[in-house]
Simulated scan of single mutants.
Amino acid sequence: MSDFIPARSGPGSFGDGPDYLALPKDVTVFVPPDLTDDPLLRRIGPAWLGRIGDALAAYRDDEPARGIDLAGLSAAERRFLDELLGHGEVSALVLGDPAIRIEETIFTGLWRVRCEAGADVPACDRLEIGPIPAILTARAAAAAGMLDLPDAASLPELVVNAPHILAELIARSAAFAATGAGHMINLDLVPMANEDLAWLVGALGEGPVVVLSSGYGACRIRSTRLTATWWVQYFNASDALILNSLEIAAIPAVACAAADDIAESALRIRAVAALYP
């Protein structure tokens, strides 16, 4: 277990946070799958490239995410898609029943969504096209609710600013629900003792969604139990915390693909398709 929301990096940090996805250490170079030695792949490869390319090109940013079910893939098709899609800059873990792992592919806005078999649901494997898979924001929203707030009369002695931050977050969360207006609080600009941060972590609680983005530096995002409220933290190359913030949003923008990126992905995958006869 590693600190997820530390007050300070290094010896000054407090407590154990939830498990999170490890920060990437290597750079992945895309190599198109080799179809030359397998007649089956020569047949199915272009078909899959065309299907995915058409779905990316058809996406519009004012519509729900498009999905492609991969549950019935043959071993050859699964191998081909695993090689083709690779690993992009964003990955996520959604806790619950079923637990869901999400990875952006090397084609921005094209996501691989895998869920474990749960009590009432089968295992799943699918592609989804859109800014972020819908299940991620749905699970975060469903888990939010009333906070179990500590008694203000029994605050620890050194907890001074955290209750004021929490009051602002509650007001901003309500405003977001009514108007869609987002907000961000940079905790590095507020005098906050370790005790303040520990109290705030306990008051907000931990939601079921953990996101890791490496698109603009290493960024870890965690949902809380307060509606549309997320911890957003940036780390440097040494994994030291350099920005600690709370964001009011359906999902922080750093985790999302833009419409222009999705359109570019459609062009890229069609360029890959052009490599095959």
Rank of each mutant, 00 (worst) to 15 (best):
Val159Thr: 05
Cys115Trp: 03
Pro150Leu: 03
Leu95Lys: 08
Ala198Leu: 14
Asn161Arg: 15
Ser91Gln: 14
Thr137Met: 12
Leu187Arg: 07
Asp125Pro: 02
Ala144Ile: 06
Arg114Glu: 15
Leu189Asn: 14
His164Glu: 00
Ile102Trp: 07
Val121Arg: 11
Val190Thr: 09
Glu89Pro: 01
Gly180Leu: 08
Gly130Lys: 00
Val160Glu: 01
Gly180Cys: 06
Arg114Ala: 15
Glu104Pro: 02
Thr105Leu: 02
Gly96Thr: 14
Ala141Cys: 06
Pro98Ile: 11
Leu147Asp: 12
Asn161Pro: 00
Glu104His: 04
Thr179His: 07
Leu169Phe: 06
Leu189Cys: 12
Asp120Phe: 12
Ala167Pro: 09
Glu104Gly: 05
Val121Tyr: 11
Leu110Trp: 03
Asn194Asp: 14
Ile129Ser: 02
Leu187Gly: 05
Met146Leu: 11
Val160Ser: 01
Ala162Arg: 08
Pro191Ser: 12
Leu187Thr: 00
Met192Asn: 06
Ile129Pro: 02
Gly205Leu: 02
Asn194His: 09
Leu149Gly: 01
Arg139Cys: 10
Leu155Gln: 04
Glu116Gly: 01
Asn194Arg: 15
Ala141Gln: 14
Cys115Asp: 14
Ile102Glu: 07
Asp188Arg: 05
Val94Leu: 14
Gly202Phe: 01
Ile100Phe: 06
Ala198His: 06
Ala134Phe: 07
Glu157Trp: 07
Glu103Lys: 04
His164Gln: 10
Leu149Tyr: 01
His87Met: 08
Phe80His: 09
Phe176Gln: 02
Ala177Pro: 00
Asp188Met: 06
Ile170Val: 14
Ala99Thr: 14
Trp111Met: 07
Val190Trp: 04
Ala177Gly: 04
Asp148His: 03
Ile106Gln: 15
Ala119His: 11
Ala134Thr: 09
Ala181His: 10
Glu77Lys: 00
Asp151Arg: 04
Gly182Ser: 11
Arg101Cys: 09
Leu158Glu: 13
Val90Leu: 06
Ala181Leu: 11
Ser173Glu: 10
Ala142Thr: 10
Gly205Glu: 05
Arg114Pro: 00
Ile135Asn: 01
Leu95His: 09
Ala142Pro: 10
Glu77Ala: 08
Met184Trp: 05
Pro122Lys: 03
Asn194Thr: 11
Asp125His: 13
Asp148Trp: 01
Trp199Pro: 03
Ile165Leu: 10
Pro163Met: 09
Arg114Lys: 12
Ile106Gly: 15
Leu136Tyr: 03
Ala152Ser: 11
Ala162Ile: 13
Ala175Glu: 10
Met192Arg: 13
Ile135Arg: 07
Gly86Glu: 07
Arg114Asn: 13
Ala99Phe: 00
Pro150Ala: 12
Pro156Met: 03
Thr108Ile: 12
Leu136Pro: 02
Arg101Met: 13
Val121Asp: 15
Ala181Val: 15
Val113Thr: 04
Arg79Gln: 14
